[in-house]
Design a protein around this nucleic acid. Structure first.
Length: 771
DNA sequence: ATATTATGCGCC
DNA sequence: AAAAGGCGCATAATAT
């Protein structure tokens, strides 16, 4: 009999390597484990009041689905505890349901359903709110094993009065049952189930983690630090000598003032005027002084000045009676204390090296309330052309600061370390990143702690030297007998555009494996596609164009930029600004494009119509006035049931003139379905890949899936299976049309080409040549 | 001292 | 026609 099993863990909550309640940190353990099988009238639990890394969830052979809330957390724990039932469960096709993930998808991925909590979700499905007591104890830093068994049981299973059929377990079950019904009625069940397998894949990826070559990282960090010092030294020579504070090259305000002129604030500890007296402020002090005959006092000791004693004595009062008879009279008087010193703000004006362009103006103002201007990479590049002297050193410093601080490690003045390497376990050199399933509006994944979706690409400069070597530190856990494998979809978003729009010419071009950038070059310069390919990619000369100063390779790059911007929905003005073309030129290209692929235009209008039709009121803060305002929110449902949600924004000026005050954003309308569907395809395929790896016992435990970045998948393989893994992965990844056409009844008629690479680390990759 | 916003920049 | 999409992280500056 098939049945589901709801389960949940309460663990100790030590945070380590940027993970709360980190299962990879051996001091943590599962304190209480609760579960409830389908049909049971109450939940049950196991309690482990002392450290234990062996307990695990028993999964009966007839269990077909594990149900949880943020189930990746609990599954990682079961894996860390070495649960032997889990792999068997997966091998016989066991599936999972994560209430947090389902809630996010059912809710169209809007803010309110991203990283939803059990607490806020349960009431939507007739569940109860949690016991605050436990949450408060945790917030106070109390460890889970210090919470009483009774309280923890009430929290996990519900109280005796509730028949032990509530709490986290009861709520998770209610949520699950309600969500399945809802998903069915909305036609989303299949899609959600496919994504749940994707979730199992990323759980596996987080569990396996990445192996970091800490030696490589260490020596590279040394080089970077030395390069940074050199850039800093160079920059220091451009600071005015009379500057009364240390210039901060990381401060946008200070940089703007130095380059464009402006007034900066600096702090100094110095004396100041007392507001009451108008004098320099001083500390209060008292002194015991000798009283003179006229009542004044003096600090001079009458007996201290040898020959002048007699003379001096005359002026002093002497006590006439009592214990102190014959002694000089003294008195405690107030005297001027030390000058007081405090931190104070001062202004310093800098003349600047050049004039800013108005469009570089930022929202921030300087200390004199004058505008500041952008000092980002694009601006610096322009300034280099104007002959501003330190632009090269500044660009170099920016690059190195970013590289060191984000991808290596930096310790600040307070001793707080930042950077990717702070997430690495120093014992086994493993990095367990996070792949988040409920963090984006488009249903794409995000990555954090560290973010492994933004590692610097392996780009070469003119001399063929890599600009960043970050990826070199990711090596195989099987080294020296291992290879990393990366497989990428080529031009995934263009392919998805073909799937969604079904535009005949686009579909044909995709099947013909046309180089879209060359095709655009051909169109623009009125040459044949064949000639364009020869000119742009093979360096075959076209004198007529070259005499006009055009270079084939550059023209292709321009076309590439153009198409990326179009894909993101950029308008003619923005593209012109970014590519250096005139607005008219860009408009002509857009027109060309729309004539060539009219299906894209009609698909976009279809999306817009659906969103407008489905729109309902939605309250949000007006960024212009800061006030709460009624906007609208509508949805477009993709071919698999994924819902993309859009909101209206304050309309741009040209629409306001015509009386339209708010509107949906065309770039968002164009982008979300493409970006989201691409993400969905990859996540579904992650599930297929993972099922394949499970079936083969991970190639005899010699190959693991370890990371994914929107349109690619990484694996860590033993050399004995590398080629087989790469071949299998490619086959499965390319099978998107078959999967969706069979399972969803879609009619995908474009290929999903995949490119495979492998190497001893993630930087030195070479292409896999398939027969 | 901690939280939030602005800026900038890495990726797809 | 018209409006360049989605993330996470580090740092500085400001608010509380």
């Amino acid at each position: 009999m098939a049945r589901y099993k709801v389960f949940d863990l309460e663990t100790t909550i030590h945070e380590k390597w940027k993970r709360k309640a980190n299962p990879f940190f051996k001091e943590n353990w599962v304190v209480m484990r609760g579960w409830k099988n389908q049909g049971d009238s109450r939940g049950v639990m196991e309690y482990y009041p002392v450290h234990d890394r062996k307990s695990y969830l028993h999964i009966e052979p007839d269990v077909t689905m594990l149900v949880g809330f943020n189930i990746k957390f609990d599954l990682l724990w079961e894996m860390a505890q070495g649960n032997p039932d889990l792999h068997e469960f997966y091998k016989r096709g066991g599936r999972v349901w994560d209430g947090q993930y389902a809630e996010y998808l059912l809710g169209g991925q809007v803010d309110e359903v991203q990283y939803a909590s059990l607490d806020e979700t349960a009431p939507k499905y007739g569940g109860t709110t949690k016991i605050d007591e436990v949450k408060i104890l945790w917030e106070q830093g109390i460890q889970t094993d210090q919470i009483s068994e009774d309280l923890l049981t009430d929290y996990l299973l519900g109280s005796h009065e509730e028949g032990r059929n509530a709490g986290d377990i009861g709520n998770t079950e209610k949520i699950f049952l309600g969500q399945v019904k809802k998903a069915q009625s909305l036609g989303m069940l299949k899609m959600i189930q496919d994504r749940m397998d994707g979730l199992l894949c990323t759980t596996e990826m987080e569990y396996r983690g990445l192996k970091v070559d800490v030696q490589e990282a260490g020596s590279r960090l040394k080089v970077l630090t030395a390069d940074l010092k050199q850039a800093d030294d160079t920059l220091a020579t451009f600071i005015p000598d009379d500057l009364p504070f240390e210039f901060n090259w990381n401060s946008p305000i200070q940089k703007s003032a130095l380059i464009f002129g402006g007034t900066v604030k600096y702090e100094k500890r110095t004396t100041y005027l007392d507001e009451g007296t108008g004098e320099l402020a001083r500390l209060k002090a008292t002194q015991v002084q000798y009283v003179l005959q006229d009542g004044r006092t003096t600090p001079i000791d009458p007996d201290s000045s040898n020959g002048q004693i007699v003379q001096a004595r005359i002026g002093y009062k002497v006590s006439k009676s009592g214990k102190t008879k014959g002694a000089y009279k003294t008195k405690k008087v107030e005297v001027q204390g030390e000058l007081k010193i405090k931190w104070q703000d001062f202004a310093w004006s800098l003349p600047g090296y050049t004039h800013p362009e108005p469009e570089w103006k930022l929202a921030t103002t300087d200390y004199a309330d004058k505008p500041t201007y952008s000092t980002g990479g694009d601006t610096i590049e322009i300034l280099a052309g104007r002959g501003v002297p330190f632009t090269d050193a500044l660009s170099e410093k920016n690059r190195l600061d970013k590289e060191i601080g984000t991808y290596y490690v930096r310790v600040d003045a307070k001793g707080v370390a930042t950077g990717m390497l702070t997430c690495v376990d120093p014992e086994d050199h493993m990095l367990h990143h996070k792949l988040n399933h409920t963090a984006t509006i488009t249903s794409r994944l995000s990555s954090s702690d560290p973010n492994l979706q933004n590692l610097t690409r392996v780009d070469m400069d003119q001399s063929g030297k890599a600009k960043s070597e970050v990826k070199k530190m990711f090596i195989s856990r099987f080294a020296p007998d291992g290879y990393m494998v990366e497989e990428d979809y080529s031009q995934l978003e263009v392919v998805v555009q073909g799937v969604l729009s079904k535009d005949p010419q686009l579909v044909k071009d995709l099947n013909d494996k046309i180089d879209f950038h060359c095709k655009r070059v051909a169109l623009r310069h009125h040459i044949t596609y064949k000639d364009a390919v020869a000119w742009c990619k093979n360096g075959v000369s076209i004198p007529a164009l070259e005499s006009a100063g055009l270079v084939g390779k550059n023209e292709r790059t321009k076309a590439k930029n153009f198409s990326f911007q179009r894909a993101y929905g950029a308008g003619a003005k923005a593209i012109a600004a970014a590519t250096g073309m005139t607005v008219e030129e860009v408009e002509a290209l857009i027109e060309n494009e729309e004539r060539m692929y009219p299906g894209i235009v009609s698909f976009n209008s279809q999306v817009e119509a659906c969103v407008i039709r489905s729109a309902v009121p939605y309250g949000a803060v007006d960024t212009e006035t800061g006030e709460w305002k009624q906007y609208r929110r509508g949805q477009f449902v993709g071919p698999t049931g994924t819902r993309y949600t859009f909101r209206t924004w304050n309309a741009p000026e040209f629409l306001r003139k015509r009386g339209t005050t708010q509107s949906f954003s065309p770039p968002e309308l164009k982008n979300y379905p493409v970006q989201g569907t691409g993400g969905e395809f990859v996540q579904c395929i992650l599930g297929r890949l993972w099922r394949h790896f499970v079936a083969l016992d991970f190639y005899g435990w010699k190959a693991f899936l370890v990371n994914t970045v929107h349109d690619c998948v990484w694996a860590d393989t033993h050399t004995s299976v590398t080629l087989q893994v790469a071949t299998d992965m490619r086959r499965i990844m390319q099978s998107i049309p078959e999967w969706y056409n069979t399972r969803y009844g879609m009619t995908i008629n474009v290929p999903f080409p995949v490119d495979a690479e492998y190497g001893i680390n993630m930087m030195d990759l070479k292409h896999v040549e398939f027969a």
